[in-house]
Design a binder for these strands. Structure first.
Length: 425
RNA sequence: GGAGAGGUGUCCGAGCGGCUUAAGGAGCACGCCUGGAAAGCGUGUAUGGGUUAACGCCCAUCGAGGGUUCGAAUCCCUCCCUCUCCGCCA
């Protein structure tokens, strides 16, 4: 959520900034609603003040033994006017809110212009895509040699876009998780947290998933209004919802490993083969709650932490800055890390690291006390995947494949796999 | 799931239709006092919003949402959470 004061300032300037994100701000509607809101609010509060005062005088008159009937009549009429005024105000406020909740975050100046991913700007390329003296296969073709990666059985158990893993592939998947967690905890200074995989609507509102993106979520039956988490970002960021954090405690750096559930509405036909796009996948998520104005440094740092995993696994990748049109709703700047997949002969997203500045913090009401003024102020939030485990598994399988159809286990993962060095299918 | 007790400011805690502008205490900050400190005394100490050039003034908030009433922390309804006991349970 943007600072509501921005909607009372230079709307044309704001509209220009949002246009970079391909969002068209309805300045006329906002301006007119704002004017009505202002007038109605002043009016309503004045009426409320009058009612409060008069009601209070009834109490005094009664105590003094005076006739209170005329006063009661007077307040009764006032009450009707107040109710009408309140109703009108509420309606305007709701309409303003609907607009406000739907406005995306403003992209940072450093974000390139562009409509879609084709305009994303490559800022770094790390490692050399390995040249194979045989035809590199896709992970599906390698893993389905045996049954260690089994989509058919998963489809029987549940449906499409789920997977069953067995044996060393399941082990490799778990090893990746453990390796990532340990690295972030012990080398990068994150605190491990265990969080619920089911959250309420307030939490999803806080991160910006609701009210606009409910279609991407799995909602549970029942009257709790619960949802499966689409990413650990939701429960982790909500650790600080409605909190005033001790400034000395910042930055808070959290890491969690969770499953993620996404309905993948609107992605029919995309990445239908293999583990790239699943309804259920595992992710190691990094979240930093930081001092305002340090978030861009934190973004660089956090992205570096995700990169460190790719580097330790010796997986070639590139780093891109998302252009305005490709940037997520809540983000002001996002780096995507794209890992090289020899089977697809392409770089594919494996991590997305974003700075939300105060956009999420405002929705979350996550604040820290300014040590100088002693006033609560919104913190900034930064997060990113470090990394998506399923996709990391795909990357390892494809990059470490051998001519004989086996997969070599990367050095750093062997301690987590009982020293297995080679996976056969 | 059943029975009971609760949810009030940073914390403790009173209030249970109008004398609350949420008492009283603790903590914290500043000041006085002191050689310095403690004690004592005094002053201040929530959040969100509106309005204002500013001082300020105003509105809302006593777990959440509805309702009754001229007026609700207080009464009624629904829900959430915490604690105790029972049941079920990995």
């Amino acid at each position: 959520m943007l600072d509501p004061k921005l909607l009372r300032g230079d709307l044309d300037e704001l509209a220009t900034q949002l246009l970079k994100k391909k969002y068209v701000l309805d300045t006329d509607a906002i301006q007119s609603l704002e004017e009505q809101r202002k007038q109605l609010q002043i009016e309503t509060e004045a009426l409320q003040n009058e009612r409060n005062t008069t009601s209070k005088s009834i109490g005094k008159a009664k105590a003094a033994g005076e006739d209170i009937e005329p006063l009661k009549q007077q307040v009764g009429e006032l009450g009707q006017k107040l109710d009408a005024s309140k109703a009108a105000l509420t309606e305007i406020q709701e309409r303003l809110q609907d607009i406000q909740f739907g406005i995306p975050n403003i992209p940072d100046d450093s974000v390139p212009e562009g409509d879609d991913e084709d305009s994303n700007l490559e800022v770094l390329r790390w490692g050399q895509p390995k040249s194979f003296d045989f035809d590199a296969k896709e992970h599906v073709d390698l893993a389905e040699q045996g049954n260690q990666m089994d989509f058919q059985t998963a489809a029987k158990i549940t449906g499409s876009r789920f997977s069953v893993m067995r044996g060393n592939i399941a082990g490799l998947h778990r090893a990746l998780t453990q390796f990532m967690l340990n690295t972030h905890i012990h080398d990068h200074g994150y605190q491990e947290v265990y969080v619920p995989y089911i959250v309420n609507a307030d939490s999803l509102f806080g991160t910006g998933n609701l009210p606009k993106f409910g279609d991407d979520l799995f909602k549970l039956e029942g009257d709790h209004g619960y949802y499966l988490i689409p990413t650990a970002e939701v429960p982790i960021s909500n650790l600080v919802r409605d909190e005033i954090i001790d400034a000395a405690a910042l930055p808070l750096k959290y890491v969690a490993h969770t499953p993620c559930f996404r309905s993948e509405a609107g992605s029919y036909g995309k990445d239908t083969r293999g583990m790239i796009r699943q309804h259920q996948f595992e992710k190691v998520e990094l979240v930093q709650i930081v001092e305002p104005n340090t978030s861009f440094d934190a973004l660089e740092q956090l992205t570096g932490h995700a990169e460190a995993i790719l580097q330790a696994l010796d997986l070639p990748y590139r780093k891109v800055v998302l252009c305005g049109g490709d940037l997520g709703f809540s983000s002001t700047k996002t780096f995507d890390l794209e890992v090289w997949l020899p089977g697809q002969n392409a770089y594919r997203e494996i991590s997305s690291c974003s700075n939300f500045v105060d956009f999420q913090a405002r929705r979350l009401q996550a604040r820290r006390r300014n040590p100088d003024t002693n006033k609560p102020e919104l913190v900034h939030t930064v997060n990113g995947s470090g990394l998506a485990v399923g996709r990391a598994l795909v990357a390892v399988i494809e990059n470490y494949q051998q001519a004989d159809g086996t997969v070599t286990v990367p050095e750093v993962l062997r301690p987590y796999m009982g020293k297995v060095t080679q996976i056969e299918f």
